[in-house]
Design a protein around this nucleic acid. Structure first.
Lengths: 129, 129
DNA sequence: TTGTGTGCAAAGCATTTGCACGGCT
DNA sequence: AGCCGTGCAAATGCTTTGCACACAA
């Protein structure tokens, strides 16, 4: 099913080396920088496959979709600077959340908190991004 | 700032009467059905304003963005039938989640669980939507 | 050898925008 | 009266797709 092509390996390598949580556009640029011969369509197709295969995680929030490698954590997005940071929740809290759903087959938890990060809270700012 | 135009009232009325959680396309169609003279661009612009004003809530998940009226609850989306249902969490659980973030200004919590709903779990199915 | 993956360019869609007009306040 | 909101249609921009070729299994 899933072939270990060079492009797949290289795109995965770029994602896993990402310090930030890129969206598809940023990811495309990073891939283009390091592996210029990889086409745009390949990035789109490959990332979707990696998500489907459970190797890469989607972060869906109000400003779009971001990607994360190997994530069993959650996210906070600053409405001012746009930075996305990781949040870790205990199994206890997660189980309490899951216990509120009658389905016994939860496959994914997309949790994104949005607000003003500590750094932005300190400085002056006017309005949100 | 926000003018109480007929279009705004009518679009809000359509959203608030929605039994389901429509995406922008479904919402456009519902608006078109009931108020054919309202243009497509107006639906887009107005919904975005209603979200910005905190009157309508965005639900962001892997299949796109859905809208909800007056929501202080959370959501579950079935990967098989696509249905979105409401989840209610106690303040206790929410506070435990929030306590994991160093920011003291959380403005929004986007929480979407995905899995197979009870109804779909009962029946046979092959593959996800 | 076979069929999936890839690159390119074009097609297909969803969303935004410019502009003139309408209607809140 | 002034100005934001609206409708229309065009523009924009993101994502997908068709096709011929490449390459992993």
């Amino acid at each position: 099913m899933e072939r270990e092509t060079n492009q797949r390996k290289q795109i995965l390598e770029v994602i896993s080396n990402c310090y930030t949580h890129p969206n598809i556009k940023e990811l495309s640029m990073l891939v283009k920088e390091k592996y210029p011969s990889i086409g745009q369509a390949t990035v789109y197709r490959t990332v979707n496959k990696l998500v489907k295969d459970g190797i890469v995680t989607r972060i869906d929030c109000s400003t779009g979709t971001y990607y994360d490698f190997n994530s069993n954590h959650y996210h906070f997005r600053c409405l001012h600077c746009g930075k996305i940071s990781d949040i870790y929740l205990s199994d206890d809290v997660i189980n309490k959340i899951l216990s509120n759903v009658s389905s016994n087959k939860i496959i994914k938890v997309n949790l994104v908190l949005e607000g003003i990060c500590e750094e932005c809270s300190k400085g002056d700012y006017n309005g949100f991004k």
